[in-house]
C-alpha cells in the first residue's frame, strides 16, 4: 500500500510549524515571561453567548485558558504565556477548526497598548525581512501598524451606522461581511475600541465608557488575535457573566456553571492585559497557506 500522501506532503509545513512555535517560545522566554501549562479540562469556562464548549464528562474542554491564566496573575505572577489546545463546538471552516492551538500571553501593570507593541515585536522576531508574502500579497510588517477604531471602521466601510448595527444585532455580520473584506491587506491592522456589549471580560475605556479596551489584529484580512485590558472588578464581572448566561438561555442554549474560584480571586488581579492569538492562522501566514487544514497534521475529517 502507498503511504498516505495527504499526510506525507505536509512534511515541509509541519517542520516550519514546529520551528515557528520554538521561535515564539524563545521570544517570550527571552523577555522573562513564564511559560505555564494549565488544565485543558475544566469545570467551567467564561460564559459567552457565541462560544460553545465541548463537554467532557461532567466538565468541559477549555474554550480558552484565560480563567486559569488570570488566576495566576491574581496570585502575583506578572508575565505569563501558554501555547495550548482549545475547543469550540461547531466551528469549522476555511480558517476554523473545532480543536486548535492558541497562544495566550498576559502582563500585569499595563493595558492593551502594550499588547499591540508585543504583536509587532513578535511578528518581527518571526520574520527575517519585516515582510510576509501571503497569497500573492506582500504584507509590510515594519512598525508601527495602523490602528483603527470600530467607530471609524463602521463609518468608512459599513452600509449602516454603528448605532443601527448594534440596535438591530447586525454588528457581527457587518463586521464579517462588509468590513473585514475591505480592511487593508498590505499592512497588519488593529481594530480597536469595541462596543461594551461585545467585550464581556474587558475593561471599559476610562475616557469613553461606551467602548471597551479591546482590539482584534487582522493580517492580510485574516483575524489573528483578540486582546483586551482586563476587567478587574469581581462584582461587575459577575453581573456581565449573568447577563451573558441570560442571553445564552434566551437562545435556548444549555446553562453553563459559573466559574466561581475565578470570580472570587479576580479581587486580587492587578491592572492587566491579555491576548489570545491563533497559532494555526499565524502559521498559515508564514507558510503561505490559504486553508487551516494545510497547517495541521490531521483535520477532524481525517481521523
Amino acid at each position: 500500500m502507498e503511504q498516505n500522501w495527504q499526510l506525507a506532503r505536509k512534511r515541509e509545513t509541519l517542520k516550519k510549524r514546529a520551528r515557528i512555535i520554538h521561535q515564539i517560545q524563545d521570544f517570550f522566554i527571552e523577555q522573562d515571561f513564564l511559560e505555564v501549562e494549565t488544565p485543558h479540562r475544566i469545570p467551567a469556562n467564561a460564559p459567552e453567548l457565541h462560544i460553545d464548549a465541548v463537554p467532557s464528562g461532567d466538565w468541559f474542554l477549555q474554550t480558552s485558558p484565560e480563567l486559569c491564566m488570570k488566576r495566576l496573575l491574581a496570585a502575583g505572577y506578572d508575565k505569563l504565556f501558554q501555547i495550548c489546545r482549545c475547543w469550540r463546538a461547531g466551528e469549522r471552516g476555511r480558517t476554523h477548526l473545532p480543536e486548535y492551538s492558541m497562544l495566550e500571553w498576559y502582563h500585569s501593570h499595563c493595558d492593551y497598548h502594550q499588547l499591540m507593541d508585543d504583536c509587532e515585536a513578535l511578528f518581527l522576531h518571526l520574520s527575517s525581512d519585516q515582510q510576509i508574502n501571503w497569497q500573492n500579497q506582500a504584507i509590510d510588517l515594519s512598525p508601527s501598524w495602523p490602528r483603527m477604531t470600530i467607530a471609524e471602521a463602521f463609518s468608512q466601510f459599513s452600509p449602516i451606522s454603528l448605532e443601527a448595527a448594534l440596535a438591530t444585532d447586525e454588528f457581527d455580520s457587518i463586521l464579517a461581511l462588509d468590513i473585514e473584506p475591505k480592511l487593508p491587506t498590505n499592512r497588519p491592522i488593529f481594530l480597536i475600541e469595541y462596543p461594551g456589549k461585545h467585550a464581556a471580560l474587558a475593561r471599559k475605556k476610562p475616557s469613553n465608557p461606551q467602548v471597551a479596551e479591546r482590539f482584534e489584529l487582522y493580517i492580510g484580512g485574516l483575524e489573528v488575535a483578540n486582546a483586551f485590558s482586563e476587567l478587574t472588578d469581581p462584582v461587575e464581572q459577575q453581573q456581565r457573566f449573568a447577563k451573558e448566561e441570560l442571553r445564552r438561555r434566551k437562545e435556548g442554549k444549555k446553562p453553563y456553571p459559573s466559574p466561581d474560584p475565578f470570580l472570587k480571586e479576580l479581587a486580587t488581579l492587578p491592572p492587566s492585559a491579555g491576548i489570545a492569538l491563533g497559532i494555526d492562522r499565524l502559521i498559515m501566514l508564514f507558510c503561505d497557506k490559504s486553508e487551516i487544514d494545510e497547517v495541521v497534521s490531521f483535520t477532524p475529517e481525517q481521523l
Binding site: 471552516g93 457581527d172 473585514e180 461585545h198 483575524e223
Partner: peptide, 14 residues
C-alpha cells in the same frame, strides 16, 4: 461553503 465568525461574535455560514 465557508464558516466564519468575527472575533467573539456570531457564527455565520456563507
Amino acid at each position: 461553503y465557508d464558516f466564519t465568525k468575527p472575533g467573539k461574535g456570531q457564527s455565520l455560514y456563507k
